[in-house]
Design a protein around this nucleic acid. Structure first.
Lengths: 162, 162
DNA sequence: CCACAACAGTTGCTATTACAACTACATGCA
DNA sequence: TGCATGTAGTTGTAATAGCAACTGTTGTGG
């Protein structure tokens, strides 16, 4: 893609970061830190599972048969392999999922959501969704929500390849 | 603020999170995780200071006299008090800042940026800014950058009060 | 002016995470 | 077939973060 064409479309010619985009970066970081801190506090105060657990369980919940291979899970939640191993240990110890060997590949295992895991999701969701609303969604107008989804979706997909 | 007035302005009537805003939330989380992971990797590969160190040092760099009280620093970088104490320990051990007692309040101390700290910032910045460009700024058009700054700035300020 | 609450920072402890090394299995290509 | 290379997951170790408890200092209402 040429720089002229990028400029025509209002994109940043690559190389340096202009002030407007730098400002966007700073509020992006600041907003993330502030919102996550608040939501985590609310979850802990309500005695439900923390955000990292929620992320893993919801990923399983949405997967076919409510199960995923561990490496798929690691990719989905942006966690190292070893980090995921231990997170799965804790979740299994809490009874929210179980490991199940993959008959088709004896190296690997599935993480499978349990009924208890579904219940934990159900208890956390009201608190979590209230947090998303209070600390994030409530302050966006429709156009901003659309712009964020489009822009950050593109950004995420581009940043996600390594 | 009444819900009707919120609706008129295209804001979300509070309570539940609609699908468009839920999508925005998900890409927001995903983009953050992916970008930060990439930038941290680049910084480590280049042998410069990590993002948390950068955050602290840049905050001092921009402060009057390049110094801040530790609690101001803790607020600025969204870190617990104990977390900051130890981060400052490490930065001081690396010679990038020093502690200095506050003559006006003997409970507290300043963190003061050193010349070595300024150099560390200077070495990290090219790597960091290239990351911001590559993984974030480059994919935003002007309108999106404006929308993100306005929207997330509001969100951050609202989420920041505890 | 003085007891008492609030604040600044540190420390002990624990939890979570990543990196690197390791085991076990799978796959490709010669 | 058989060995080399790659992949899946676990484990040892170390770094970083938070909470709660503690010390020392400030400031305030009675």
């Amino acid at each position: 893609m040429s720089e002229e064409r990028a400029r025509e479309r209002g994109e940043q010619p690559s190389g340096r970061v202009d002030e407007a985009r730098m400002a966007a970066w700073q509020v992006f970081l600041g907003a993330h830190a502030a919102i996550i801190a608040r939501i985590e506090r609310d979850l802990a105060a309500a005695g439900v599972i923390p955000l990292t657990w929620y992320d893993v369980l919801i990923e399983l919940y949405e997967a076919p048969d409510r199960r995923l291979r561990l490496h798929e899970l690691a990719d989905a939640v942006v966690l190292s392999r070893s980090g995921l191993t231990r997170l799965v240990d804790r979740l299994a110890a809490a009874g929210l999922l179980r490991r199940e060997p993959d008959p088709a590949d004896r190296r690997g295992a599935f993480a499978v959501l349990t009924a208890e895991g579904v219940r934990a999701l159900g208890r956390a969701w009201p608190v979590y969704s209230r947090g998303i609303d209070r600390y994030f969604a409530r302050d966006l107008n429709d156009e901003e929500a659309r712009a964020i989804t489009a822009a950050l979706g593109r950004v995420r997909d581009a940043a996600r390849e390594p």
